[in-house]
């Protein structure tokens, strides 16, 4: 054992401890559970990978996987664009900037279930705010959660409202470390606003942008709370995310199959995270 390693060991151990207790063991434990027939009302027996074979034939699973991916893609794309816009805005000098930054964070500070409940009330058909406003303007009302598309878009709006501030605040931190001199120099060289944005801001922001998108993607993949509250997975199962689908099996008492669903969600998130790291050249980005 080298001296350097021995010195480093006590500093590393707490981290290793925390990561293994709170992250590694739960994943391994869940995987182990997924290899068993663990239904509370049936005898427990080892079934190997047969739950994963069952997943392949399970149309409900593929439907929720497709919904989850679409939800993730659309919500993250919109959140990133809006978040970038907001970050650029509050990075400028203007009066009440401090207040603006604080207000901007509000949706993120509200617990997500409460935020979701607020949106559910807004979308309500008979007494909801959205229909109230719509009625005043056009005289018509919309059954927001009544169609698959309507429910999907309603969920996207609620999610974007809540998590855009998160993207914005991370990007704001990234914007603040870009030195002003570069911009001044570019101005002297005659670069237009768009040139400055695409040639300076975006490339220098890229590392932090990738971190923000990665965080949001993983978060969006395991979306549960807002769907549970707003649509409950409906109408007709059209908005059931993978987490919600797995949860339904836990509720039934089928812990084995539920675990298999959780593990596939974990693998999906892992795969996408690796993809980002690979294509985004994460190492350079962080350093």
């Amino acid at each position: 054992m080298s001296r350097e390693f021995r010195t480093a060991l006590p500093f590393l151990l707490p981290l290793v401890f925390v990561v293994s207790v709170f992250m590694l063991f739960p994943v391994i434990g869940t995987f182990w559970m997924s290899l068993w027939q663990d239904v509370s009302f049936l005898p427990r027996k080892f079934v190997g990978l047969s739950h994963y074979l069952r997943l392949f034939r399970d149309t409900g699973f593929w439907q929720s996987a497709a919904f989850t991916l679409l939800f993730t893609f659309v919500s993250v794309a919109v959140e990133t664009m809006l978040g970038l816009f907001m970050a650029l805005l509050v990075n400028e000098q203007f009066r009440f900037r401090g207040l603006m930054r604080a207000v901007m964070l509000l949706p993120w500070a509200i617990p997500s279930v409460i935020g979701a409940r607020i949106w559910q009330l807004i979308y309500r058909y008979d007494y909801g705010l959205a229909n109230y406003v719509l009625q005043k303007i056009s005289g018509k009302v919309v059954n927001w959660l009544g169609s698959s598309t309507g429910a999907f878009l309603s969920l996207i709006i609620a999610d974007v409202w809540r998590t855009t501030p998160f993207v914005a605040i991370i990007l704001l931190a990234g914007l603040q470390v870009i030195p002003d001199e570069i911009y001044r120099q570019a101005k002297v060289d005659g670069a237009t606003l768009f040139q400055r944005f695409f040639r300076i801001t975006l490339p220098l922001l890229k590392p932090i942008l990738i971190v923000a998108v990665l965080f949001r993607t993983i978060d969006a993949l395991r979306v549960f709370d807002i769907i549970y509250v707003i649509t409950g997975g409906g109408p007709g199962g059209a908005t059931t995310s993978l987490s919600l689908y797995g949860y339904k099996y836990f509720l039934l008492g089928d812990f084995g199959y539920g675990s298999a669903i959780s593990i596939s969600l974990f693998l999906l998130a892992l795969f996408i995270a690796l993809l980002y790291i690979k294509t985004g050249r994460f190492k350079e980005a962080v350093l």
């Binding site: 509370s40 009302f41 009544g146 169609s147 698959s148 409906g234 109408p235 007709g236 199962g237 059209a238 339904k248 099996y249 509720l251 039934l252 008492g253 089928d254």
Partner: peptide, 23 residues
């Protein structure tokens, strides 16, 4: 039956799909 919940979840999805006009 012990797996009633699962049967119910299926009924919920399809009956709801029918009364919503999706199916």
């Amino acid at each position: 039956v012990p797996y009633y919940t699962r049967l119910s979840q299926i009924l919920q999805i399809y009956v709801n799909a029918a009364i919503s006009g999706r199916m």
